Amino acid sequence: MKNKDTLTLGHQACFPLYALSREITNIYRPLLDDLDLTYPQYLVLMVLWENEAQAVNEIGEKLKLDSGTLTPLLKRMESKKLITRKRKADDERSVEIALTISGKALKKEASKIPAKMISSLGISEEEMNQLKRITSKILNKISDREK
């Protein structure tokens, strides 16, 4: 293959991943609008629904977000009364995030979103699981390389 041929969108793995990410986020938008959530807020809530009360840096590690991105997001969520932010007594540098009653209550409504997404994408649950396995494998390899 000639070098110039490799510089087409059709030969790139990164472009379909980028485009797919944008499209999936666009499909999420109306589902999350019904809950008055943005996609990043939804991600934070999922982390907290899984393991309530976590430090900001723990949430950031799980979502691969730095504190400069996460802090304003968490402040907006606090103003919506979805979470509380509290300095840890044993380490005042660390801020603990916990769900409010409203944040916990959203889980029931949000639990319908994954099935709606699979339906909207027109793929099977097995195809979705295959996509998750492959993307998780790549993300893990990148994370391992960065350590």
Score class of each variant (00 low, 15 high):
T84Y: 10
W49N: 02
A98Y: 00
L65F: 08
I97S: 03
K116R: 13
V95N: 06
L43M: 14
I83D: 04
K112D: 06
K62T: 11
L63H: 05
T84W: 12
V56A: 13
E50P: 06
V44R: 00
N51Q: 13
T69A: 08
K81H: 09
K75S: 13
V95R: 07
K86N: 13
A53H: 02
I113C: 00
D91C: 09
M46N: 15
L73G: 10
Y42C: 03
S111Y: 05
S79K: 12
A89P: 15
V95S: 09
L48E: 04
E58I: 07
S79N: 14
D66C: 05
K107A: 09
M46G: 10
L82W: 01
S111W: 04
Q54T: 00
K112S: 08
I113T: 03
I83A: 04
R87N: 14
E78H: 01
K104P: 00
D90L: 03
E61M: 07
N57H: 15
A98M: 07
T100C: 06
A115G: 04
L99E: 06
Y39V: 07
K116T: 05
G60N: 07
V56F: 02
V56C: 11
I101T: 12
K88I: 12
K112G: 02
L73T: 07
P114M: 01
A98R: 14
D66W: 01
A105S: 13
L99R: 08
R87W: 06
V56R: 11
S79M: 12
K81N: 08
A53N: 07
L74D: 06
A110F: 04
S111T: 02
P40K: 03
M117A: 03
V56W: 05
G103H: 05
Q54G: 02
I97K: 01
K86L: 11
A105N: 14
I113W: 02
K116D: 11
E92T: 08
R93H: 07
R85F: 03
S67D: 09
S79G: 07
K108T: 09
L63Q: 06
R87Q: 15
D91S: 10
K64Q: 13
L43H: 06
K64V: 14
S102K: 15
L82P: 00
E52I: 07
